[in-house]
């Protein structure tokens, strides 16, 4: 199965790592690799999450991640330097 890397921007709030890790655990998805780091904006952190998922399962993980209130955006980093696929099931307009 192909590895996929998700670049996830999250609010830098306490417990956000537990929210993300817990979501993977309870939906029975494995995290291959996870790193968390700061961004230029001190209120926002970046998580790079490598998963061994594709197709439907990958879509579900992204949709469920996007439901977390502290998750701001999710980008899928494609291997062959193609432009990243932006996943945002909650587009940034309030209506």
């Amino acid at each position: 199965m192909a590895q996929h890397t998700l670049e996830v921007l999250v609010e830098n709030s306490p417990g956000v790592l537990a929210r993300v890790a817990g979501l993977f655990a309870r939906r029975a998805y494995n995290i291959e690799r996870l790193s968390v780091g700061p961004t230029a904006n001190p209120t926002i952190s970046q998580m790079d999450i490598v998963v061994n998922l594709e197709g439907h399962a990958l879509e579900q993980v992204i949709a469920q991640l996007d439901k977390l209130i502290n998750v701001i955006s999710i980008e899928e980093i494609l291997p062959n330097k193609a432009a990243p696929a932006v996943h945002d099931t909650q587009p940034d307009y309030q209506n």
């Binding site: 999250v10 609010e11 209130i69 502290n70 955006s73």
Partner: peptide
Amino acid sequence: NLPGYKPKLI
């Protein structure tokens, strides 16, 4: 102000 929460209603 919740940048990660903008439910799509329309």
